[in-house]
Design a protein around this nucleic acid. Structure first.
Lengths: 245, 245
DNA sequence: CGCATTTTTGAAGCGGATCAATTAAAGTGG
DNA sequence: CCACTTTAATTGATCCGCTTCAAAAATGCG
């Protein structure tokens, strides 16, 4: 765990069109809120289940997963966290967490604990509203996934996941034309999609055989987007701009 | 659709311990926000998918479901809405909706459009925070359901749903000792749990045979809570108090 | 009461899980 | 840098939970 100081004014995310622009005074408040920057190795725990009163983080670089572990040891991945996403909102707002977060690659995080969220609401009510908006968008995405897990088959789920991650990276200007980084293994896919690792393997080789998409060496290649969209019934992600703290 | 005026001071929900208490000034603001009260028949649409810029409602009496319909005509129920729950947050905050809401029984709703949520945030920042908190709790419940749909079998899902609904009613002082109203049919259960109607029927008769729980004539009876809790791996709902607008 | 909708029950089929054995890839240490 | 160990990915065989189809029984409703 290294410490590296990166002032918000030099943040490489902030200028990207996906994120909400800032006034001078807002920026200075955020710089007060931010009080550290840490780096964690791949596979390390960022938040462990049951943790109480944790800090709020912004994922600055790298990938992480948000997941739950069930009594029977199985795991459900709830989200892939990408640069700019918040980590620890549940813990910060509710005082404890029922999910865990683990780094997928090496990650670096902005630590926001200089000022509490309460003060943000008092000083910048329209920011509070932006945050509310972000949460509601999150709920919309979750609703979508509930429907996907409840109603679609393996190939449709896989297609949806590929397209969603690709598009989320694209919004952040982190994807190529038809490929993007993809540090998830088969087991991760299985735990995300509610399938077994073995079946993920089969669906994936079917995708490759039909020349729809394939994953190799940490990269996702989408060879036939149109057909994938059709299979999954994919409708696109919500557009930005979004709050960034 | 009848119109009946019910001033907030006579709200039958507000005094219940599950809901957050109010100061005089907060109450008067809410009374400004509230500008109507409507009643809808069972099975009528409260919100239709794609609807833009709708009002925000509080469900006052009756039950409703929040759901999505997929391209292939199948339906995923996302939530059972009980008295005190908000309806239309997505539409109000984001400007449009990707889910629908339909009344299950006859319902009556408080219509909140006198003041926008923005003004609530400005005038009562700690209220904004309460609202944020409510959303985060909702997310936690959704996370749970993602894991349930992704990882548990039919009996476990059913058990979880029964226990959750029962406990949510109990919080509102609307459940008996081991029974509560339950206006959902087999098809509703199937659409909630990601199962077929036929299979729901089978699981249910198994539950009855094992004397765990049964549904008849719009009432849910939980005969062996301990065993149900054990089967489902149920961990309880988050306690109140909660915001009520 | 009679029609429509919902529920139950049975039989057959399928998607995906599980088990088990192999191959490939990624770390690790000498 | 290569042999060794560990972990992850494929592949085949079998099994099971759930779906689908179809018909009968029950329930609700105008």
């Amino acid at each position: 765990m290294r410490e590296v100081a990166i002032p918000c004014t030099e943040c490489w995310l902030r200028p990207r069109p996906y994120f909400r622009p800032f006034s001078e005074s807002e920026l200075s408040f955020i710089m007060l809120m931010k009080n550290g920057h840490i780096t964690l190795a791949a596979k390390s725990h960022v938040i462990e289940i049951g943790q109480v009163g944790g800090s709020l983080f912004t994922l600055y670089e790298g990938w992480a997963i948000r997941y739950k572990e069930l009594p029977d040891k199985s795991r459900q991945i709830l989200d892939v966290l990408l640069p700019g996403d918040f980590i620890g909102m549940e813990s910060h707002v509710l005082g404890s967490t029922e999910h865990s977060v683990r780094a997928l690659t090496e990650v670096s995080l902005c630590v926001l604990r200089g000022r509490r969220l309460t003060q943000l609401f008092e000083g910048y009510p329209e920011w509070g509203l932006s945050l509310l908006k972000w949460l509601v968008e999150g709920q919309r995405r979750d609703d979508n996934w509930r429907a996907i897990l409840g109603r679609l088959d393996a190939a449709q789920r896989m297609g949806f996941l590929f397209l969603e991650i690709f598009d989320r990276l694209k919004q952040r200007e982190m994807a190529g034309n038809n490929s993007c980084p993809f540090p998830l293994g088969r087991q991760h896919l299985a735990d995300y999609l509610g399938l077994s690792r073995v079946h993920v393997s089969r669906v994936l080789s079917d995708f490759a055989a039909r020349d729809l998409a394939h994953v190799s060496q940490g990269t996702l290649y989408i060879s036939n987007r149109a057909k994938l969209v059709d299979i999954a019934g994919y409708q696109g992600t919500t557009p930005g701009p979004r709050v960034l703290l």
